Amino acid sequence: MDGLIDFFQTNGALVISNPTAFATFAVLFGSGGFVVGRYFLAERIANLESRIAR
């Protein structure tokens, strides 16, 4: 966690000068991670849903 805080402290000026690009990449990587996670965990989720249905 300290590494992330240090990263934002050292690159804060870059983020502040380009907030649109930062927000765009944050949304793209966040949604991409969600889609990949859903893809790889779809079978496990289906198994748990079938257990609940029983």
Score class of each variant (00 low, 15 high):
residue 7 F to W: 07
residue 34 F to S: 04
residue 1 M to W: 09
residue 53 A to G: 12
residue 5 I to R: 09
residue 39 Y to E: 02
residue 26 A to W: 06
residue 1 M to Q: 05
residue 4 L to M: 11
residue 23 A to L: 15
residue 2 D to K: 14
residue 37 G to R: 06
residue 52 I to M: 09
residue 38 R to S: 05
residue 32 G to W: 05
residue 42 A to F: 13
residue 54 R to I: 01
residue 40 F to T: 01
residue 15 V to Q: 01
residue 18 N to V: 01
residue 18 N to W: 11
residue 14 L to V: 10
residue 48 L to I: 13
residue 6 D to T: 10
residue 4 L to P: 01
residue 32 G to C: 03
residue 16 I to E: 13
residue 31 S to T: 15
residue 53 A to T: 02
residue 22 F to Q: 00
residue 2 D to R: 12
residue 50 S to N: 14
residue 51 R to T: 02
residue 36 V to L: 15
residue 41 L to H: 09
residue 3 G to T: 05
residue 24 T to C: 05
residue 51 R to Q: 08
residue 36 V to N: 11
residue 16 I to F: 15
residue 5 I to Q: 07
residue 3 G to M: 11
residue 19 P to M: 00
residue 41 L to W: 04
residue 43 E to C: 00
residue 50 S to K: 15
residue 28 L to T: 08
residue 40 F to D: 04
residue 49 E to T: 09
residue 3 G to Y: 12
residue 8 F to H: 12
residue 24 T to G: 06
residue 44 R to M: 06
residue 2 D to P: 00
residue 43 E to S: 08
residue 7 F to E: 02
residue 39 Y to I: 10
residue 34 F to K: 01
residue 19 P to T: 06
residue 18 N to I: 03
residue 25 F to P: 00
residue 27 V to Q: 07
residue 36 V to T: 07
residue 11 N to E: 09
residue 30 G to H: 02
residue 50 S to V: 02
residue 39 Y to W: 14
residue 51 R to E: 06
residue 4 L to I: 12
residue 5 I to E: 08
residue 13 A to S: 13
residue 26 A to M: 10
residue 44 R to I: 04
residue 5 I to A: 08
residue 3 G to W: 11
residue 42 A to S: 11
residue 13 A to N: 11
residue 13 A to T: 06
residue 9 Q to M: 12
residue 27 V to N: 07
residue 7 F to L: 10
residue 21 A to T: 14
residue 35 V to T: 03
residue 46 A to V: 09
residue 48 L to F: 07
residue 23 A to P: 01
residue 2 D to C: 09
residue 49 E to S: 12
residue 53 A to V: 01
residue 52 I to H: 09
residue 1 M to S: 11
residue 48 L to R: 14
residue 14 L to E: 11
residue 50 S to Q: 13
residue 31 S to F: 15
residue 14 L to R: 12
residue 51 R to W: 04
residue 53 A to P: 04
residue 34 F to Y: 11
residue 26 A to T: 07
residue 51 R to S: 10
residue 34 F to G: 04
residue 33 G to P: 05
residue 31 S to D: 01
residue 54 R to C: 03
